[in-house]
Design a protein around this nucleic acid. Structure first.
Lengths: 227, 227
DNA sequence: TGACATTGGTAGCCGGCGGTTACTAATTGC
DNA sequence: GCAATTAGTAACCGCCGGCTACCAATGTCA
């Protein structure tokens, strides 16, 4: 059984795979996802996807797909799932490689696509819906290891905007003082000379994401997350 | 470009995928990985794999592969990576789905396979080596959310054995008092009536993994892991 | 012009977590 | 009986993180 002839492997192998592009952004205090609107030819909302043509450069093809759509490769992008299991997918491919990315709030959608609320996610084809769920979960779980929230903001941002983005992703309110104390202690933002005044209230200083070189503290062993 | 005919997708699509089985265990205080020894026909160490025959049941096929090898489905098993990118793989398949699993220390290897030290990992074919690295990283990152260390132990275990397993996975020594305090506070183990006495020293009480129903505490926002 | 609302930003209290030291308990081997 | 070895716990204490309270700077409006 081990090491079959190449022809054997080809004989009853599943054919083809799709690359699916999960692109998150934020708009009006909501998380949004890039999708073909339901008004398309299929009459159904659908994530952008492309047939995988050469598995020799999977990550390259994923980046190319993203760049072709968005104009440039997103600052944060990663593979989040590989789905098959007989779920419905517009490509008819038996396998789909789901890539998730994040672009700054306010990025205009490419032609033919729109920013959809996450509530519209239920209308996606089954496999894409599952991929979107997994992608969103991945965003939430990785945001304390990778600068996901920062990539959803412009290069310069206020600390209030950063906190609002964290609250959006985590789905819970955070305390301002604690948030800023932890942020300053980690030293991962550096202030700029600019200030932003939006209507009422005291102007806010603008910051940049500037992670230090030094190694991060190791976290203690935790048992309270098991179950 | 969107929604190509099925024939189009098939035309230049990559053909076939392999399922690769990363099975970790522990032996003599070392982490080990199930592999075909280098004495096989290929003369090279190799992870067990199988051609994916029906993508309709990817997870089912992965479980079946594991069960066929080990006799039963491992208590912890998950998909950790999908690799292509032109790396070498014994199957010649352009894509490989890597599944990682964990079995109790002392589980005998199936015929034709052996428990290999992680140092032997460098000898694997490139794609399998990459998969093994990713799998090991996944083990370490997920062990505070999923009961990975517990699945590497027998059903009943001593707290010292549990701590040794955590130290093995994390690659660092832990303090006994802190470890046990956190463990008791989380309430995820329950003592049994049995005691184990191995040679010298005071006998140790045996415990079982028994996670509570209650919801886990939410962890604070952390910025010190970014960068 | 001055009071108020609004948003930005910080000081400091305090309970609990987690690293550490130090101790007690129970067994084997001499 | 005594040393060695392993299991298990108590308690100190610094720091993290939730919280309250406060000050700062702007726009709005009477």
């Amino acid at each position: 059984m081990r090491r079959p002839r190449r022809a054997d492997a080809r004989a009853n192998a599943p054919t083809g795979a799709s690359l699916d592009f999960l692109c998150f952004s934020a708009r009006d205090g909501r998380l949004t996802l890039l999708a073909h609107p339901a008004t398309g030819r299929s009459g159904r909302a659908e994530l952008p996807w492309r047939a995988l043509t050469s598995a020799r450069t999977v990550t390259g093809e994923a980046r190319r797909l993203a760049a072709d759509l968005m104009g440039s490769v997103p600052l944060w992008m990663t593979h989040v799932a590989t789905l098959g299991d007989g779920t419905v997918h517009p490509s008819d491919a038996p396998l789909s490689l789901i890539y998730a990315a994040v672009v700054a709030a306010g990025t205009p959608p490419p032609a033919g696509l729109a920013w959809a609320n996450l509530s519209a996610l239920a209308a996606l084809p089954a496999r894409q819906r599952q991929g979107a769920d997994l992608g969103l979960t991945a965003l939430r779980e990785r945001m304390d290891r990778e600068p996901i929230a920062f990539r959803l903001l412009d290069e310069e941002f206020t600390l209030s905007a950063l906190q609002a983005m964290y609250e959006l992703l985590l789905g819970q309110r955070l305390h301002k003082a604690s948030f800023r104390r932890a942020l300053q202690a980690a030293g991962i933002v550096s202030p700029t000379d600019s200030w932003r005044s939006e209507g009422r209230g005291r102007p806010a200083q603008l910051y940049r994401y500037a992670p230090p070189r030094r190694r991060s503290r190791r976290r203690p062993v935790r048992f309270d997350l098991l179950g």
